Simulated scan of single mutants.
Amino acid sequence: MTGRAQDLIGGVLETSVYADDLEAARGFYGGVLGLTEIMALKGRHVFFRCGPGVLLVFRAEATQAPHPPGALPVPAHGAVGAGHVCLAVPEAGMEAIAAHLTAAGVAIESDFRWPSGVRSIYVRDPAGNSVEFASPRLWEMPE
């Protein structure tokens, strides 16, 4: 297969945030947001189906440790400090997601419209990561 990288890349398959308390993350992403948990390893990670992709929640300390002999050769990684993830919500569902978050006791940090008219709602997960909800139209480029 040949071609320019941008012609070969079809989208984001997975993205990750980091949390020290995986049970709190499980409660937020699985409980409050209702994402389906697809895999977990106690003390290391919990993964959720998120539309066609996967949201990975890792304990950074656990992912920075060297792999034991015979383990899959996934490079060590990890981040320090709060990260960011934006979850796609249809424009018609934005009011409902705001009401759902409020009813679940999740404080809305910011709720505004970009100059394009797209609405973004920002909250924090239990680890302090910035979680945004916005229409996929947010990144459509004007013609």
Score class of each variant (00 low, 15 high):
residue 78 G to H: 13
residue 105 G to F: 02
residue 19 A to V: 08
residue 76 A to T: 15
residue 27 G to T: 12
residue 22 L to A: 06
residue 41 L to M: 15
residue 14 E to A: 15
residue 29 Y to H: 09
residue 67 H to W: 00
residue 49 R to N: 01
residue 23 E to K: 13
residue 25 A to W: 08
residue 50 C to H: 08
residue 21 D to Q: 01
residue 96 A to I: 03
residue 84 H to Q: 09
residue 76 A to E: 12
residue 83 G to N: 03
residue 12 V to K: 00
residue 57 V to K: 14
residue 43 G to C: 14
residue 114 W to F: 07
residue 83 G to T: 03
residue 21 D to E: 07
residue 33 L to R: 01
residue 120 S to W: 04
residue 121 I to M: 10
residue 97 I to N: 07
residue 106 V to K: 14
residue 34 G to M: 02
residue 45 H to V: 03
residue 105 G to S: 07
residue 87 L to E: 06
residue 20 D to G: 15
residue 95 E to F: 10
residue 55 L to S: 02
residue 80 V to Y: 03
residue 92 A to I: 13
residue 108 I to L: 15
residue 64 Q to V: 06
residue 34 G to V: 04
residue 54 V to N: 00
residue 30 G to K: 12
residue 79 A to R: 14
residue 25 A to Q: 11
residue 125 D to R: 00
residue 53 G to W: 12
residue 89 V to Y: 09
residue 34 G to Y: 00
residue 39 M to S: 12
residue 57 V to G: 11
residue 106 V to E: 14
residue 27 G to E: 12
residue 62 A to C: 07
residue 110 S to P: 01
residue 14 E to P: 00
residue 96 A to D: 02
residue 109 E to L: 14
residue 69 P to G: 09
residue 45 H to G: 02
residue 18 Y to I: 06
residue 11 G to C: 07
residue 110 S to Y: 02
residue 21 D to S: 02
residue 91 E to I: 01
residue 95 E to I: 02
residue 27 G to D: 12
residue 62 A to P: 05
residue 78 G to A: 09
residue 65 A to D: 01
residue 118 V to A: 05
residue 28 F to G: 06
residue 74 V to L: 05
residue 86 C to F: 05
residue 64 Q to Y: 08
residue 83 G to P: 01
residue 120 S to Q: 13
residue 93 G to Y: 05
residue 106 V to C: 13
residue 26 R to D: 08
residue 48 F to D: 01
residue 104 A to T: 06
residue 34 G to Q: 07
residue 87 L to D: 08
residue 33 L to Y: 04
residue 82 A to D: 10
residue 30 G to T: 14
residue 41 L to N: 11
residue 75 P to D: 04
residue 29 Y to L: 13
residue 117 G to A: 10
residue 67 H to E: 00
residue 38 I to V: 15
residue 87 L to M: 13
residue 117 G to H: 07
residue 33 L to V: 01
residue 74 V to P: 00
residue 86 C to E: 06
residue 97 I to L: 01
residue 94 M to K: 08
residue 38 I to C: 04
residue 109 E to H: 11
residue 37 E to M: 11
residue 39 M to N: 09
residue 118 V to I: 14
residue 50 C to T: 15
residue 82 A to K: 08
residue 29 Y to W: 07
residue 34 G to T: 11
residue 122 Y to Q: 06
residue 58 F to H: 10
residue 102 T to N: 13
residue 53 G to E: 10
residue 65 A to N: 03
residue 13 L to V: 09
residue 72 L to H: 11
residue 119 R to D: 01
residue 12 V to D: 00
residue 18 Y to P: 01
residue 11 G to V: 10
residue 106 V to S: 10
residue 29 Y to Q: 08
residue 50 C to F: 10
residue 119 R to Y: 03
residue 28 F to P: 05
residue 96 A to V: 03
residue 75 P to T: 06
residue 57 V to E: 14
residue 19 A to T: 15
residue 66 P to Q: 08
residue 23 E to G: 13
residue 63 T to R: 05
residue 90 P to V: 04
residue 90 P to S: 09
residue 114 W to M: 10
residue 30 G to Q: 02
residue 121 I to G: 08
residue 105 G to L: 05
residue 109 E to F: 10
residue 68 P to T: 02
residue 17 V to N: 07
residue 124 R to K: 15
residue 109 E to T: 12
residue 88 A to Q: 02
residue 123 V to K: 03
residue 30 G to D: 11
residue 82 A to V: 05
residue 125 D to Y: 00
residue 116 S to D: 11
residue 71 A to K: 12
